[in-house]
Computed example of a mutant assay.
Amino acid sequence: MTSAPRSKARPRPVARFRHGGPSLRSRLVNDATRLTVKQIMRGWAINPALGWPTGLVDKAARLLPSPSHTDAQPVRLPHCGAEWLRTTERQDCRKRAVLYLHGGGFVMCGLNTHRAMASELADRSDAAVLNVDYRMLPDSAVTSAVEDTVDGYRWLLDAGYQAGEIAVVGDSAGGYLAFTSVLSLAKAGLPTPAAIATVSPLTDASPTLHRPDGDGCPMLPRSALRAMVRYLRHCHRRIAVDGKRVDLVSPLREDLSALPPVSIHVGGRDLLRTDGEVMADLIGQAGRPCELHVWDGQMHDFPATTTLTPEGERALSEISWFITRHTGPGPSGPRNPTPVRAA
């Protein structure tokens, strides 16, 4: 794919934040994840095309207790399902809305696995959240997931929200969708949302990005990331949209000059830490405002453990503060620490 021309906008410094840790609870969660999730991911990486029952992950998550402070209503988008999450005490939620995109490597997870995280954002941001159950591999291309994301954004606009009242939030593969979908809005004739917030975003769906050696992430083994990239390419060679081969888009190679303010959170031991750091630098070079938060000792997608670790709680509070700051009247006081240095 031909690289998009870089914007000639004046570069802006990236606001960098360093958060200490890990706490004892975080260490325990990291150890438990290393012994369970990471080993399962290693097994999956041996042969992703084997027909693993990845859909069972989200089905099993139905057994998790539903957040007591949030009401969930089903929504039907043109090609997929979604759910509308609102805090029970504030059913109108007219101030702002969040378009939420779950992670899972484009092959697993869904509404059930990420309902708790999306509900926390609804509560902490005083927002309504549209949690999108976008189409996934192997049956649908990643471009179909981007289309579902844009459909979710249209749904929010049709529901009466202005673009300046909407934030797009995604974790891991959902972070990739957050960037690619917002970049595609102009082509669809839609206005840009007020903000993007991502956690451990995948920003380069190719093996070209240099990531640090080692396998220290407690959740995501390097073998699984390599296998996911190969599987993506395998599926896309097989899938055609409108009779044409589907190309993978890398946000790192797109013109980022039209992005709204961005907040990126990565763990210090996150296998995708480099993805977030490189993306932040490129956003700054494109002249757009960006925050980069690095959480020492944390694994990939650690805010998904928000009810288990204080770092997850704090990260979601930071994201919620960022959302409220850019989509309406700001919060009563800043929660984020002083930047450690400017880019």
Results as ranks from 00 to 15, higher is better:
Ser3Ile: 14
Pro13Asn: 13
Val14His: 02
Arg16Lys: 13
Arg18Ser: 14
Val29Pro: 09
Asn30Asp: 15
Ala32Phe: 01
Thr33Phe: 04
Thr33Asn: 09
Lys38Phe: 06
Ile46His: 10
Ile46Trp: 11
Gly51His: 02
Thr54Asn: 08
Thr54Val: 15
Thr54Lys: 08
Gly55Arg: 15
Lys59Leu: 15
Leu64Lys: 13
Leu64Asp: 07
Ser66Pro: 01
Ser68Cys: 02
Ser68Ile: 04
Ser68Arg: 12
His69Cys: 03
Asp71Ser: 13
Gln73Pro: 02
Gln73Arg: 10
Leu77Arg: 08
Leu77Cys: 05
Leu77Asp: 08
Pro78Gln: 07
Gly81Pro: 04
Ala82Gln: 04
Ala82Pro: 03
Ala82Phe: 08
Thr87Pro: 13
Thr87Arg: 13
Glu89Val: 09
Arg90Lys: 14
Gln91Arg: 15
Asp92Arg: 14
Ala97Leu: 09
Ala97Arg: 11
Arg115Ala: 05
Ser119Asn: 00
Arg124Gly: 01
Arg124Asn: 03
Ser125Tyr: 06
Ala127Ser: 15
Val129Glu: 08
Val129Ser: 11
Asp133Thr: 03
Arg135Thr: 03
Arg135Ala: 04
Thr143Tyr: 02
Thr143Val: 00
Tyr153Ala: 08
Arg154Asn: 06
Leu157Asp: 07
Gln162Phe: 06
Gln162Glu: 15
Ile166Gly: 02
Ala167His: 01
Val169His: 09
Ser172Ala: 10
Phe179Gly: 07
Ser181His: 04
Leu185Gln: 11
Ala186Tyr: 09
Ala188Asp: 11
Gly189His: 06
Thr192Glu: 12
Ala195Gly: 12
Ser200Cys: 14
Ser200Leu: 02
Pro201Val: 00
Pro201Met: 12
Thr203Val: 09
Asp204Cys: 12
Ser206Trp: 03
Thr208Met: 03
Thr208Phe: 01
Gly216Val: 10
Gly216Cys: 08
Cys217Phe: 06
Ala227Asn: 07
Arg230Gly: 11
Tyr231Thr: 05
His236Pro: 09
Ile239Gly: 12
Ile239Val: 09
Asp242Pro: 00
Gly243Ala: 10
Gly243Pro: 10
Val246Pro: 07
Leu248Gly: 05
Ser250Arg: 04
Ser250Lys: 02
Arg253Glu: 15
Arg253Pro: 02
Asp255Lys: 09
Ser257Arg: 05
Ser257Ala: 15
Ala258Ile: 11
Leu259Lys: 10
Leu259Asn: 10
Ser263Val: 00
Val266Asn: 00
Asp270Asn: 03
Asp270Thr: 01
Leu272Asn: 01
Gly276Trp: 01
Val278Gly: 02
Val278Lys: 06
Ala280Arg: 03
Asp281Lys: 15
Glu291Cys: 07
His293Leu: 03
Gly297Asn: 09
Pro303Gly: 01
Thr309Val: 14
Glu311His: 13
Gly312Asp: 07
Glu313Val: 13
Arg314Pro: 00
Leu316Asn: 12
Ser317Val: 11
Ile319Trp: 01
Ser320Phe: 06
Ser320Ile: 07
Ile323Lys: 04
Thr324Arg: 15
Thr327Pro: 03
Gly330Val: 05
Pro334Thr: 02
Pro337Cys: 00
